[in-house]
Design a protein around this nucleic acid. Structure first.
Lengths: 206, 206
DNA sequence: TTATGATTCAAACAAACGTTTGATTGCGGG
DNA sequence: CCCGCAATCAAACGTTTGTTTGAATCATAA
């Protein structure tokens, strides 16, 4: 056997994740994906029905884990009486970093997530909102408890800014390039630390 | 004459900007663009040579103005001895807001710019870096003067975060929807104010 | 072993894409 | 008037796209 140990479905999902992140949803063709997965072209429509469904499956696989990790981290923090702003921020940011550091295309997935925000089409945004929105609202409640002087509107504005900066940083959009001496792992760890420090001060602004 | 007063070239540029922002570079076809511009399909290749060239022209038209506005605003601020962090931030952020508020597709262009960051392909990123990078470096020098306690590396990390949050906010990615009572103009003005307050505190973090 | 249902495969499908062609139109200067 | 060039037009070009087809192959249970 020359192909990998994983099933056809798994291999398609893995290859799709990498290629979608590298070239975008439209530019990455099913022929590229199936070639990279060492799988017949028709296998995508057999196992997933359509390219659109494949895209959603790729998202679901990772987002489910990200959501539960964030919720677990949040519950650990909110049930202790003296939780700090930085701890809640870390509960929000750390799982995203960990996911981006996951071997087998974690970073690729993060770029794909950012790309999904940029692709402004409504079906995909609705899908993301359904799988994403309730977690953000849970965090908003806890942030509101820690920053009671902020109006609900002010708080939402600032959380939106944090989410934007996080997305941007994790997707490696920025001008900051990894220093040759540091690993990708350390680069993203630094990004998380800087982001938490920055966001903590920003959220606490008068 | 049923078509607009503008020339074929202008009408193509306008329609392209809107449709690229709405559907992305790949999804928006030249047939859609030329139909919206009330122009023959072949006109794009006649006037611009290729779709790739058209994309670059759409960028150049707006970016040139954004750059000079930012540089003008920066020079006004840096040549007064008691300039503040908020003033420099405003010199960076305000021109972007103004551009996004420009009638005839300013908001559309901003979404297109964010999309260009997401499209991770190198030719476009090089083009943006060439037309964008030197302005960012000018701002970095002034910020460094106002925040001397920050190492150059720390400063670059934080500026990268600011740029990311600005891009995200201007492209209207976030979960914050415009309130029914407020105009788009006021919505973006509010976004700018919140962003400046947040970024000012974030940059000043210990 | 044989029969059955799931999977894989090469091949072809129609549709849409960016681009090119060659004829036609419109218009300003000689 | 008419020449010459720039602009516009309908039509077609060759690719590439996602999807479908029907036969071949595999695995499993009777």
């Amino acid at each position: 056997m020359i192909t990998s140990q994983f099933s056809t479905k798994q291999r398609i999902l893995g290859a799709a994740e990498t290629l979608f992140a590298q070239h975008g949803f439209e530019k990455a063709s099913l022929r590229q994906v199936t070639a990279a997965a060492h799988v017949n072209l028709a296998a995508v429509n057999y196992h997933f029905g359509s390219k659109e469904n494949l895209i959603e499956e790729v998202f679901r696989r990772r987002l489910d884990r990200l959501n539960t990790h964030r919720q677990d981290a949040l519950r650990k923090v909110e049930h202790q009486p003296d939780s700090t702003l930085d701890q809640v921020l870390e509960a929000f940011i750390k799982p995203a970093i960990d996911l981006s550091l996951d071997q087998n295309g974690g970073g690729a997935f993060m770029r794909m997530l950012a790309r999904a925000y940029a692709e402004h089409d409504q079906p995909l945004r609705k899908f993301l909102s359904d799988n994403y929105g309730h977690v953000l609202r849970e965090f908003a409640v806890v942030f509101h408890r820690l920053l009671p002087h902020l109006s609900k509107e002010e708080l939402y504005w600032r959380l939106d800014i944090v989410a934007g900066a996080l997305t941007y940083a994790m997707a490696d959009f920025g001008l900051i390039k990894r220093r040759p001496g540091t690993t990708e792992r350390n680069h993203r760890k630094q990004a998380a630390e800087h982001l938490i420090r920055f966001a903590s001060a920003g959220l606490s602004a008068p």
